[in-house]
């Protein structure tokens, strides 16, 4: 692989993720509306919302510090960086060695810390409440996420996501009970980290039950647009991590232009399926009480640890 082709792939993937992320959000919302017998909004609605928000004038609280203004850009940057590291379309990207799975979790943690700080910066009660809840969920979800990734890392013998995907995509067919455990744990972490039901309701208007929404109540216009966009990219990144770990078939190698159409088609099909499954899950489940969130996430941690132990014992 020559460097220029690799860079072209990297740029292509990064731009693709940023542009496609709101579409995924729109698709999930549409599926959920169908499942709940509502008239579905257009798939393109998130784009219109972003365009509308970018054209408005921002209102910022008088007591806001520079941190408050900076945070939306940090969030967006973190998510974009994560989207560049995860092998979405191709493995072996030039960006990939910049961070392994541990650093990737760190990037998500950085975004979380900034959004919590910004939420407390204004000093409103809902901001502080949301930030505390977010940190509670975050510190429980992170170990589960790491354990899940470690299981896949043990199977392939590397913590580089691109190596893991390469190994898993090109192995002979085998049933891995450990990966089944890790997959279930990853799904639970995905729901918690992306503020979906059962941990948080992304469409709630009731401040007392909010987690993520409570943190961004004070944002408006372009800042809010960037945060919403970052949320969409985060969901996209998590889904593609899941796809990369548990169903990596069809992914291209960087520089291989002939494999690219298949990789894009496979990715879109898998994302459509995953988005519909997420909508179905959200329709079937009810939001948990906040105090049951630790139980939910400790179950995720348990599954991830069981997956790792099973890998050691049965070597599969």
């Amino acid at each position: 692989m020559n460097l220029s082709a690799g860079i072209a792939f990297q740029v292509l993937q990064s731009v693709f993720v940023v542009l496609a992320a709101p579409l995924l959000m729109g698709w999930v919302n549409q599926c959920r509306a169908w499942l709940q017998n509502r008239t579905a909004p257009s798939v393109l609605l998130p784009y219109w919302t972003l365009a509308k928000l970018f054209h408005k004038d921002a209102v910022i609280a008088r007591d806001a510090s520079p941190l408050f203004r900076l945070t939306p850009y940090v969030l967006f940057g973190c998510m974009w960086l994560a989207a560049g590291i995860v092998p979405v379309l191709a493995t072996g990207l030039p960006f990939a060695p910049a961070a392994d799975i541990i650093a990737l979790v760190g990037v998500f943690a950085l975004a979380r810390v900034f959004s919590a700080l910004a939420a407390m910066d204004i000093g409103t009660s809902f901001g502080g409440l949301g930030a505390r809840r977010e940190m509670l969920i975050g510190f429980l979800a992170e170990p589960a996420m790491l354990m899940t990734l470690f299981t896949a890392a043990f199977i392939s013998g590397s913590t580089q996501l691109t190596t893991i995907v390469d190994t898993l995509a090109h192995r002979a067919f085998a049933i891995y009970p450990s990966l089944a455990f890790a997959g279930a744990a990853f799904l639970m972490v995905l729901l918690a980290e992306n503020a979906r039901i059962p941990i948080d309701n992304p469409t709630t208007h009731l401040e007392l039950t909010m987690v993520h929404e409570a943190m961004i109540l004070e944002y408006s216009a372009r800042h809010l647009a960037l945060i919403e966009w970052a949320v969409a990219i985060k969901l996209f990144a998590y889904m593609t991590i899941g796809i990369a770990l548990f169903m990596p078939w069809g992914i291209a190698a960087a520089g291989d232009w002939s494999a690219l159409p298949l990789a894009i088609a496979a990715l879109l099909a898998k994302l459509a399926l995953a988005g519909a499954a997420l909508a179905l899950l959200e329709t079937l489940l009810a939001k948990l009480r906040l105090f049951l969130a630790p139980e939910f996430l400790s179950a995720a941690f348990l599954l991830a640890v069981l997956g790792m132990l099973t890998h050691f014992l049965v070597q599969a």
Binding site: I175, P177, S178, A180, F181, L306, T310, V314
Partner: peptide, 10 residues
């Protein structure tokens, strides 16, 4: 059998 064993543990 390994898968079923894992299921049993779960």
């Amino acid at each position: 059998v390994n898968l079923l064993a894992a299921l049993l543990l779960l």
